[in-house]
Design a protein around this nucleic acid. Structure first.
Length: 739
DNA sequence: TAGTTTTAAGTTTTT
DNA sequence: CTTAAAACTA
């Protein structure tokens, strides 16, 4: 027996088996916190170091950029040459492939990637008289179709939308998209599969390059991604996928759990290794998470064993409203960091179901000076001025880009209205679908005003292109000495981007348009410019920059080493862990979302499971009695999950709203617990009495305390409000109702 | 036709 | 409370 190298020593038996495994395809079923990232990164290092596999022939695919980065970091820490392995998301791999082989699908290497909003613009250009919401739905369905690898001709398209109209629109959309020379997200997966299928030579080259392929979070792969995986694997490729069916949370995006179930069949009798030892969470936390997800039918089922002991019980807090929730979370964190020696802000994460919920926490944390960072929050790249600037850049890169052209041609106002626009676009057919050429050729059909506008637009584009192609000229640097190269590296693309935004009048447009918000918009543009600093001032550099933005919208958080609380959506936490986690907003309609049922409800349960299993030491759940929605306070019922959860493993604080019965829990705990009584000392009130109040409606007496001033009564109303009052101060506005 | 004011409608989750 | 569509004015 060979001696075991140190980096393999702390692995358990199953983990080690997974790392050493070779030959047949391998499916690793890895529960939450069972060390699967560790297995993948160790395996990469092991293959390079012990099996002399060329790092360049290893491909590891993940679902988020963050996961890809983390994986690269950890693998490189063990084996430095792992830096040459390719670690990408599925989409980023698809883009990488298409930049090199797009010609086989009629794409040039400078395509840009359309987001959902751009899809809607394309649809709007081919369909008349549909509202934006309808177009959004169609765009969504086209995305789904591509996730399932359906073409406009596929018979199965009826499962997405049964109308024959949809088939027609999908076909027209594909046609319009092709003319722009660009791709949407779905194409990044679908087109590579088609190219590999139709061009054996291309496939052969790829098969020669990648001998080892690993997929992380495999439960989130959709049908098209599964097809891509098959297409990049040859019989000689070693394939290893890692996943957990209980953590599949992207069904809405076409993820198919059956990819996991069918993997052994589809990949010729794969070996299966289960990792069922959880090293992350204490057992009470796991029990709480498991008690909810076990209600799901149709799961592989597994016993996750906690290796860390029982720990403290998770806490469930019933609170009044979202302001209360923000304050309580802030107080909890602040207190913990202040009091406990071993608690830092960075140990904490506040989880929520929707991005919109982050606002309340941000405000409160700012007020209390609690340092935080927000993960995700796509808002920045959705701002109008940013989209304008990016559209301008996209058009410079690809002058067939109709979506971007429409967006910026008349911004600032150049007198080019709808009719002029249509005229220019009609000229495209004679100009090989190049819009810039079409605009040049369209002069005679336009009004004098529009003609002048077109000239000024073309000028701006041309200037931009000149700067991009010959960026060094402005320095007059004949000798390419070190200092000019350093200068170029430091300025990168950002100078060109800044010039372009100025010259094309985007910045001026926003400055003059609205004095108040104009300045913020211009400073947002400046931030975009700063982001371009690392990229070359060349068309390729620009294309790289745009791709990064399209595929990885998480704003680069500067790591100043300060310890910060993490604010994050539950979806975004996948693959992360925190010592202390607060899952907020456990209310019916919010989490789980609106009356989800069947498979959708099961997905929400898995989401709960993912969130809860992020916690290592402490888990807190909050549920509010009411919440502001559309600016109006509306009553909320506690989440269904709070009825399903194993309550014996939790501590409860506060009392649930009117009418909600926790399964087998004694009355209420908390402050009043010590001197709780059935009847008030003045005999006026009885615990559990129904009462009516003009302002709040029906309610129930929830607690009776005795004070120096006499009895204090607490009422919970059906609308979620709660009220405390002195018995003797109560007037006739209150009516008692006997059962 | 471009820009503003009024009115109606509406909240997932992400590559 | 915010955003999109419709209606309106210069």
């Amino acid at each position: 027996m060979n001696e075991i190298p140190p980096y393999l020593q702390d692995l358990n038996e199953e983990q080690r088996a997974a790392v050493f495994h070779e030959g047949k395809p391998l499916l690793i079923l890895a529960g939450a916190g069972s060390g699967k990232t560790r297995v993948v990164t160790t395996k990469i290092a092991y293959l390079i170091r012990e099996k002399f596999v060329n790092p360049r022939s290893i491909l590891a695919v993940t679902f988020t950029n963050k996961a890809a980065r983390e994986m690269a970091e950890r693998a490189t820490a063990i084996e430095s040459s792992a830096t040459d392995a390719m670690l990408r998301t599925f989409h980023s791999f698809g883009a990488w492939f298409l930049r090199r082989n797009g010609e086989y699908a009629g794409l040039s290497s400078n395509f840009v990637i359309y987001d959902d909003e751009d899809m809607v613009t394309v649809l709007a250009s081919i369909i008349e008289g549909k509202k934006k919401n309808e177009l959004k739905l169609i765009a969504h369905q086209i995305s789904r179709a591509k996730d399932y690898f359906f073409t406009p001709e596929s018979a199965d398209l009826v499962f997405i939308n049964h109308k024959s109209e949809f088939r027609k629109i999908y076909a027209q959309y594909e046609d319009a998209l092709r003319k722009t020379g660009n791709v949407d997200f779905g194409d990044l997966i679908k087109k590579p599969v088609e190219i590999l299928r139709d061009n054996p030579g291309v496939a052969q080259k790829l098969h020669d390059r990648f001998r080892v392929i690993m997929v992380d979070e495999y439960q989130d792969a959709n049908v098209a991604q599964f097809e891509l995986l098959k297409a990049i694997c040859s019989p000689e490729t070693y394939v290893c996928v890692v996943g957990d069916d209980d953590q599949s949370i992207y069904r809405f995006r076409g993820a198919e759990v059956k990819n996991i179930l069918e993997f052994p069949d589809r990949f010729g009798g794969a070996d299966i290794i289960r990792l069922e030892k959880n090293y992350r969470s204490t057992s009470h936390i796991l029990d709480v998470a498991d008690s909810v997800v076990r209600r799901n039918t149709g799961r592989l089922g597994k016993e996750l064993k906690a290796e860390r002991g029982a720990g403290v019980k998770p806490m469930l807090a019933f609170l009044n409203d979202q302001d209360n929730e923000a304050r309580e979370c802030a107080a909890l964190i602040d207190n913990s960091v202040r009091v406990k020696k071993n608690s830092a802000y960075s140990d904490w994460a506040v989880l929520y179901r929707t991005n919109a919920q982050s606002f309340g926490f941000e405000n409160e944390f700012l007020r209390r000076k609690i340092p935080y960072r927000i993960v995700g929050s796509l808002k920045f790249y959705e701002r109008e001025e940013i989209k304008d600037a990016l559209a301008l850049l996209s058009f410079v890169v690809n002058t067939k880009d109709e979506v971007s052209f429409r967006r910026v041609v008349n911004k600032p106002s150049r007198g080019i209205g709808a009719s002029a626009l249509e005229h220019i676009l009609l000229e495209r057919a004679a100009a090989d679908w190049d819009i810039e050429a079409a605009a040049e050729n369209s002069a005679q059909g336009l009004s004098a005003k529009a003609r002048a506008g077109v000239v000024s637009f073309l000028e701006a584009i041309n200037n931009a292109r000149k700067t991009l192609l010959t960026p060094q000229q402005e320095n007059g640097a004949q000798v390419p000495d070190d200092s000019s190269r350093i200068l170029k590296a430091a300025q990168g693309l950002s100078r060109c981007v800044a010039d372009l935004i100025e010259n094309a009048g985007i910045a001026e447009y926003h400055r003059s348009h609205d004095e108040v918000s104009g300045e913020t918009r211009v400073s947002n543009l400046q931030e975009l410019v700063n982001g371009a600093v690392l990229y070359d001032a060349t068309p390729e550099g620009l294309a790289d920059f745009l791709e990064r933005i399209a595929l990885d919208r998480a704003i680069e958080q500067q790591d100043d080493g300060e310890s910060r609380v993490t604010l994050i959506t539950v979806h975004n936490t996948k693959g992360l862990e925190f010592r202390r986690v607060i899952m907020t907003g456990l209310e019916q309609g919010l989490f789980p979302r609106n009356d989800k049922e069947g498979d959708d409800l099961e997905e929400e349960r898995r989401l709960f499971y993912v969130g809860a299993t992020r916690a290592m030491d402490e888990l807190y759940l909050t549920s509010c009695a009411c919440r502001r929605v559309f600016g109006q306070t509306t009553p909320m019922a506690p989440s269904l999950f709070l009825e399903e959860v194993d309550i014996s493993k939790m501590r409860i604080v506060g009392s649930p709203p009117y009418g909600f019965k926790l399964p087998s829990v004694k009355e209420k705990s908390g402050k009043a617990a010590g001197h709780k009584q059935k009847v008030s000392s003045d005999g006026r009130w009885r615990l559990g009495d129904r009462v009516f109040n003009e302002d709040c409606g029906y309610g129930e007496i929830n607690a009776i305390d005795e004070d120096a001033e006499g009895p204090v009564i607490t009422v919970c109303y059906e609308n979620g409000r709660r009220q405390r009052f002195l018995s003797r101060a109560q007037s006739s506005r209150f009516m008692k109702i006997r059962d």
